[in-house]
């Protein structure tokens, strides 16, 4: 019995230390974000000329587009790919709201999957950073490829229907990339939240976006940050099934390893929830705190499965 208890406590300790370490790093990164983003407004040309194109698939809500356009960094654009035939009303709404006109668009030989029907840019100066692509929907990887073909900047941040940018996300990306000594990094990902930034040339060299693109980029050309970049806005289902599964697991542990190990497991779970809650409070003022907390759990479990690139 004692041996089982020792092993269980050792496993739980690993979980607890991992969670504590990650919380400390994310908290420090959030504090640093608040520190470093205070000074850079209007100085974008000095940040290593880093520019970022946010490429979107499935984004059609005007509110979502407003949020994406709300980032303050200068060298930044938002490219939205939509199927004008499938979502004609949303498409028309965007065209009217942002006074978009159809512009010339030639086929791009860099990405064969990027077959674009039409391209639109805004006539209004304040929305110059918005680009709309009309493309028949096949799968979202193709949408991202089409946006990549049009992108003006070196770095791409894919965003999906349920993804929202964290405050100052683009500034943080620019600062993180400009601080690197070797400027030609292919990938930047956040350990605190969702969101992966790719270098445009790396995407083209790998034949466009696919679920395996993360594996295709060598790890030495990837860097990570603890600053939250994107949070998932998808409404989560009722927590009851999760609570039931946790309760059943604790009961099983009690039967197999005894009451003390069951209490230790329960306390570890409560501690992880408390840590996630603390982090979510730190990342205010935003409406993303709870989502970020859920993402925190997902990231902890991500060590058990292979990394595939997908957007939500």
């Amino acid at each position: 019995m004692n041996e089982i208890e020792y092993i269980s406590i050792a496993v739980l300790s690993i979980f607890a230390i991992t969670a504590l370490h990650r919380t400390a790093r994310i908290a420090d990164a959030i504090h640093r974000r608040d520190l470093i983003t205070d000074d850079i407004a209007g100085c974008c040309e000095s940040l290593g000329f880093v520019g970022c194109s946010v490429i979107c698939s499935g984004v059609y809500s005007l509110k979502h587009i407003e949020e994406l356009l709300g980032q303050e960094y200068d060298r930044y654009e938002v490219i939205i790919t939509l199927d004008a035939q499938e979502q004609s009303s949303a498409f028309q709404e965007i065209i009217e709201r942002y006074r978009m006109i159809r512009v010339n668009c030639s086929s791009n030989e860099e990405l064969p999957t990027a077959s674009i029907r039409a391209l639109y840019r805004s006539r209004q100066r304040s929305f110059r950073r918005l680009i709309l692509i009309d493309k028949a929907f096949t799968e979202y990887y193709d949408d991202l490829d089409a946006a990549t073909a049009i992108a003006s900047y070196n770095y791409l941040l894919p965003v999906g229907h349920n993804s929202r940018l964290c405050p100052k996300a683009v500034e943080c990306i620019a600062i993180t990339l400009s601080e690197q000594e070797t400027q030609s990094l292919d990938m930047l990902y956040s350990l605190a939240s969702e969101g992966i930034v790719f270098r445009r040339d790396a995407v083209i060299a790998n034949g466009g976006f696919s679920q395996h693109i993360v594996k295709q980029i060598p790890s030495k050309r990837q860097i990570y940050t603890y600053i939250p970049l994107i949070f998932n806005n998808k409404l989560t289902p009722s927590p009851l099934p999760t609570i039931s599964v946790v309760a059943a697991t604790i009961c099983t542990i009690q039967l197999l390893a005894g009451g003390r190990v069951a209490i230790a497991t329960m306390m570890t779970i409560i501690m992880i929830i408390a840590l996630a809650r603390y982090l979510s409070k730190l990342s205010t003022p935003t409406n993303c705190s709870l989502r970020l907390m859920l993402c925190y759990f997902r990231k902890i479990t991500s060590i058990f499965h292979s990394r595939k690139f997908r957007i939500s």
Partner: peptide
Amino acid sequence: TIGSVYIIVVTTITIATL
């Protein structure tokens, strides 16, 4: 036991975090 020590440590961290 080691289990009790672990529970006390984790509870303390949880209270501090809250």
